[in-house]
């Protein structure tokens, strides 16, 4: 009997991978925690995981933020059993639009604009993406836009709060902040 050769595939894991995985794990944990919260209207959620995305964006740039955001959407939906359900596609559409807006928003002059601006803009992009997908795919009727004021209000409030939390985490000294030290 011939000896079987070991066929372990070694994927080189970089420091970047560890860091992204750590932040994504934090974002997924927030997604799962948030799924337990009751919501007055489907689609209105605080979006706490976006705090992590904002922190990553400010610390490590857009590429890492995009990884964390998309890993959060995919893995988070797997954990809460929403993968490939309508909610998953809505979250994905929202995340993609947010990332597109954040790609532009990160070029705002940092002297005048902080994480709160990025957060609010991303939150509006998020509901925009979700509503557009809902209009095209789930509710092929302009009636969905009647909900726009409610969604926009939620985006403004939660976007501002998430942005403030992100700004506070970013302003905190890293040493006093073990959870967010990342790969350092």
């Amino acid at each position: 009997m011939a000896l079987m050769t070991r066929s372990t595939i070694e994927l080189p894991v970089t420091v970047d991978d560890y860091r992204i995985a750590r932040y994504a794990a934090a974002a997924i944990a927030l997604t799962v925690a948030e799924a337990a919260l009751p919501s007055p209207l489907p689609g209105i959620k605080p979006g706490l995981a976006n705090i992590i995305v904002l922190v990553v964006l400010a610390r490590y740039g857009w590429r890492d933020a995009a990884w964390v955001s998309l890993l959060r959407v995919v893995a988070g939906s797997l954990v809460i059993g929403q993968f490939l359900a309508p909610g998953f596609f809505l979250a994905l559409a929202g995340a993609l639009c947010s990332l597109a807006v954040l790609a532009l928003a990160q070029h705002l002059p940092p002297r005048f604009f902080g994480p709160v601006s990025a957060s609010v803009l991303a939150a509006f992009a998020h509901i925009g993406g979700q509503l557009l997908l809902a209009r095209v795919w789930l509710v092929p009727h302009d009636g969905v836009f009647y909900l726009l004021p409610l969604f926009a209000t939620a985006a403004l409030v939660f976007g501002a709060i998430n942005g403030l939390v992100a700004a506070r985490l970013l302003a905190a000294p890293v040493a006093a902040n073990p959870a967010l030290k990342g790969a350092s």
Binding site: F112, V120, L156, L164
Partner: peptide, 10 residues
């Protein structure tokens, strides 16, 4: 934590 631009945008 809020910069001038943040206030304007809000």
């Amino acid at each position: 934590l809020l910069k001038p631009g943040d206030w304007v945008l809000l």
